[in-house]
């Protein structure tokens, strides 16, 4: 932590005041403290970024060669073999030659499943939670606050408590090992999404709706044509949060979606990790799979991330 003084003791002359205020506005004055602070920040960024690079470096390596040169900063004996194995394109001999897993795995299928699951969950959850948030923030009805409170208490409940009975429910509905079973519990709402959108809607001036009402708009029109378009920033933030969460969910799909046809990437990675070849783990293949699981959300973030970063935390505590 820097102990640099922002303003050195100077004679208290009033004509200096403006300059001193300006100096104080600068966050930290150039000096050792500031250099040290930047050094720490850069170190944090290196520690943040290095594992991503290491994933890539390993994924592009020949798994057998990794053992010979574990410290190499570049891919060892570069090959796309890891990716070929993960996408089920490599023959058993080819995989064995590089020290890879020979079990049958098809990340195309799991990637498709993950995209379907995360997209469906995000769409349903954001739409329905926003609608509910409108009813909680903007409509007058008896019992509104009590119902809202009930919704919000669910925020504090560890998911496993309801997911055990939910498993029985999904089983009884005959939806085990279907994408529907993986999607359903998160499709209609999460307490957080309702809470988040309500907070935002509460902050929109009422005059806007009243003006629309005078123009003869009903609640449906006000919500879909006036309020939603005004809410693009929180909607992007919430959608990205929902997508990240749905994409990374492991526990629930592990319970209800173990079979190939409903297996998402996180579950597939767990299975892949458990299929260790006799020679030793297929690290190259595993990191290729991990990269496939990480990339789609990273791309989404690069496209939509700006508003997300700016708005995280304004009520975005999750």
């Amino acid at each position: 932590m820097s102990t640099t003084h922002l303003v050195a003791a100077a004679p208290a002359e009033s004509r200096n005041r403006r300059a001193r205020v300006r100096a104080a506005r600068k966050r930290i004055r150039p000096g050792w403290g500031r250099i040290l602070a930047w050094a720490v920040l850069i170190a944090v960024m290196i520690v943040t970024l290095f594992p991503f690079y290491w994933m890539l470096r390993t994924a592009l390596s020949n798994n057998n060669a990794l053992y010979a040169d574990p410290g190499s900063l570049l891919p060892v004996d570069p090959t796309l073999g890891g990716f070929r194995r993960v996408f089920g394109l490599a023959s058993a001999e080819e995989a064995a030659a590089e020290g890879g897993t020979t079990g049958s795995i098809d990340f195309w299928l799991y990637l498709r499943n993950s995209v379907i699951v995360a997209t469906a969950i995000t769409t349903g959850q954001v739409l329905f939670s926003s609608m509910a948030a409108y009813a909680f923030a903007r409509l007058h009805w008896k019992g509104r606050d009590a119902v809202f409170f009930l919704f919000i208490t669910a925020l504090m409940i560890p998911p496993i408590f309801v997911q055990l009975p939910n498993f029985i429910l999904i089983r009884d509905l005959g939806l085990l090992n279907t994408l529907a079973g993986v999607i359903l519990p998160f499709f209609f709402m999460t307490p957080f999404a309702v809470f988040f959108m309500r907070q935002f809607l509460l902050g929109i001036p009422r005059e806007i709706e009243e003006a629309a009402m005078i123009d003869g708009a009903g609640h449906g029109r006000i919500f879909f044509r006036v309020l939603l378009p005004m809410s693009s920033t929180p909607l992007v933030t919430l959608s990205l949060l929902a997508y990240i969460t749905a994409w990374g969910e492991y526990f629930w799909p592990l319970l209800v979606g173990r079979a190939d046809e409903a297996r998402v990437l996180t579950v597939a990675l767990g299975v892949f990790r458990a299929q260790t070849p006799q020679t030793g783990p297929d690290w190259a293949g595993l990191m290729a799979g991990a990269l496939v699981a990480a990339l789609p959300v990273l791309i989404l973030f690069i496209v939509f991330g700006r508003r997300f970063v700016e708005n995280i935390g304004y009520s975005g505590i999750k």
């Binding site: 594992p51 990240i244 990374g248 990675l269 990480a294 990273l298 973030f301």
Partner: peptide, 15 residues
Amino acid sequence: VLLPYLVANVVVALV
């Protein structure tokens, strides 16, 4: 700084 949060727990664990 936010990048690690975007990656699934499972991926982070394996890396």
